[in-house]
Design a protein around this nucleic acid. Sequence first.
DNA 1: AAGTTGCTCAACCGCTTCTGG
DNA 2: ACCAGAAGCGGTTGAGCAACT
Length: 206
Amino acid sequence: MGRAPCCDKAKATGTGGNWITLPQKAGEFEGLRRCGKSCRLRWLNYLRPNIKHGEFSDDEDKIICTLFASIGSRWSIIAAQLPGRTDNDIKNYWNTKLKKKLFGRAPQSQRKPHQISSSPSSTVLYNCSSNTYHTAPTSFSCFEPSNSSSFSNTSASCLTDVSILQPQESLFGPIQLHQLHDNGVQMLAGEASCRSSDGSCSIKKN
DNA sequence: AAGTTGCTCAACCGCTTCTGG
DNA sequence: ACCAGAAGCGGTTGAGCAACT
């Protein structure tokens, strides 16, 4: 009954069984005291082959920021765009480093442990020319993958001054991209969308 | 050297989603 | 349509370590 065990799909990568029965089997040999859920998590986040450990690259930063701006804290979807990174990894990276990088930090005396002082704004702006991130009151910036329509291409380049408007209402529907000109005029520059089925995102430039 | 504070990240927890009976 | 049970997901915690005083 129920969903097919994820291990059926994962046999090729080594779990080879049912997460619920795995700790029982392991316990027979090593006295392992873990529930199946913990085993699954440990496998997914740490033991799985091809997991990348270590520093995130600038490209990965950009992709995380862009996807967070457009779909929010859907870490599994964001992780799907970053081969070798896990949702837990990205979540931790966002909470401990990237958020500070984006939103700045309050004086240490005002902070409690494990707390980010400034509440995350729903908007993120990336300045292509200075290669920096900052908050913006009404718009998002986004990146355009250099030569494909998929974010799986990590060598993203900028669409200068392009903003995604009304992101909250457009989680998976098409999001209009507007280009801001020096004289303040906004021109429709393209459309971005994410598919809820597989979490892939794409940008179509006009 | 000892105590305090802050940071990182693996793991936990509880809720949601999915799927076959 | 409903239920049961398993996986999936995201928020949160806390141990261990580093930096600072």
